[in-house]
Amino acid sequence: MNGIDISSYQAELNAGIVPSDFVFIKATEGTNYINPTWREQAGQVTQANKLLGFYHFASTGNTIAEADFFISVVKDYIGKAVLVLDFEAGAINAWGNVGARQFFESCKKKKTGINPMIYMSSEVTRQFNWSTISTSNALWVAQYASMSPTGYQSAPWADGKGYGAWSSAAIHQYSSSGTLMNWNGHLDLNLAYINASQWNELAGGSSATEQNNNNSNSELEDDDLMKFTYEIIDAKTNKSQGTVYFYDGNKVVALNNIDQWKIITEIYKDTTGKSMKHYKWRTDAPWYIRFLQSINQKAVEVAWK
């Protein structure tokens, strides 16, 4: 399937008459910006019986607040349109993969029950370890061969280096210089490797809803709630600073006894059948600070002795 993605920059474009099987529309950015033309553009898409998607352009703010804002704007289309986190620019350093995961958790568990897609460049797919979301959140990747004007392509160029934790992309954006009938400007062009039925499942159609309803409560809790431990590695000595931190899904707690770590991981393994993730974050790449910022926690709590 061939498609385009648009924003307020294409306010004069009639998405119903420009050739496409699907259209992604920018809905929001950060926690304040709403595309003033998104409803009109969405109406053009649905009236033309095309597949619809909305994306949120990630800013550098609180991940949950941005997820809440996005869902509050597009809530009338939940189950009818594919939702996407546009992960680029400042969000890459401000959020990292942990912040993106928290955005998805908020969208799915608290608001929609579905898994949004994620949009990023091919380079960013290899910049972080995306294994925690690659099995649940489909990839829309951007990779261009050139900036030359082009129409739709059936086999766009890829560099062959892969997409990190994803074995393949669901959608490939291969040009920002697309030329199509009924529009005089350039457009982003995309090739979808999924069909209309799979698109509707990503949007939260009947197949996805039935699958979610078949999950037990314990499965949902394990899939939807982040719980992990981490320690901080001193970049100068290449040794741990000695403290293990536990994120319980709501806040970070500094553990002060090795037995606390053992009992947490043992119970997690007994109840979920899985090993709890443990990260080692270095002081010269302070993701532990970025994570605290993303969950809006200014100070780490300390477990009582």
Rank of each mutant, 00 (worst) to 15 (best):
S175W: 07
S175K: 05
S176T: 09
S177C: 15
S177K: 15
S177W: 13
G178Q: 04
G178D: 04
M181C: 07
M181S: 15
W183I: 09
N184Y: 03
N184W: 01
N184V: 03
G185K: 08
G185T: 09
G185H: 04
H186T: 12
D188M: 09
L189Q: 07
L189M: 08
L191W: 04
A192C: 04
A192P: 02
I194E: 07
I194F: 04
N195F: 06
N195L: 06
N195K: 11
S197I: 06
S197Y: 01
S197P: 00
Q198M: 08
W199M: 01
W199T: 02
E201S: 14
E201I: 02
E201H: 02
E201K: 13
G204F: 03
G204N: 10
G205K: 07
S206N: 09
S206C: 01
S207Y: 08
A208H: 01
A208I: 03
T209H: 03
T209C: 02
E210H: 12
Q211Y: 13
Q211M: 13
N212A: 15
N212C: 00
N212S: 13
N213M: 14
N214G: 09
N215R: 15
N215P: 00
N215A: 11
S216V: 04
N217D: 13
E219C: 02
E221I: 13
D222P: 00
D223R: 15
D223W: 10
D223Q: 15
D223Y: 09
D224Q: 14
D224L: 13
L225M: 10
M226S: 15
F228K: 11
F228E: 10
F228V: 14
F228G: 03
F228S: 10
T229E: 08
Y230C: 01
Y230Q: 03
D234G: 01
A235R: 10
K236E: 12
K236D: 13
T237F: 06
T237L: 09
T237V: 05
K239W: 01
K239E: 12
S240P: 05
T243H: 11
T243K: 12
Y245K: 05
G249N: 09
G249M: 10
N250F: 04
N250G: 09
K251A: 11
K251I: 05
V252S: 03
V252R: 03
V253Q: 06
A254Y: 05
A254E: 05
N257I: 00
N257F: 01
N257D: 15
D259G: 01
D259M: 12
Q260Y: 10
W261E: 13
K262Y: 11
K262M: 09
Y268P: 08
Y268I: 06
K269M: 12
K269L: 14
D270H: 06
D270W: 02
T271R: 11
T272I: 07
T272F: 11
T272Q: 08
G273P: 08
S275Q: 10
M276S: 06
Y279T: 03
Y279E: 08
W281N: 02
W281M: 14
R282E: 04
D284W: 06
A285N: 15
P286L: 01
P286G: 02
W287S: 08
W287K: 05
Y288R: 03
Y288Q: 04
I289V: 14
R290T: 10
R290I: 00
R290D: 08
R290Y: 03
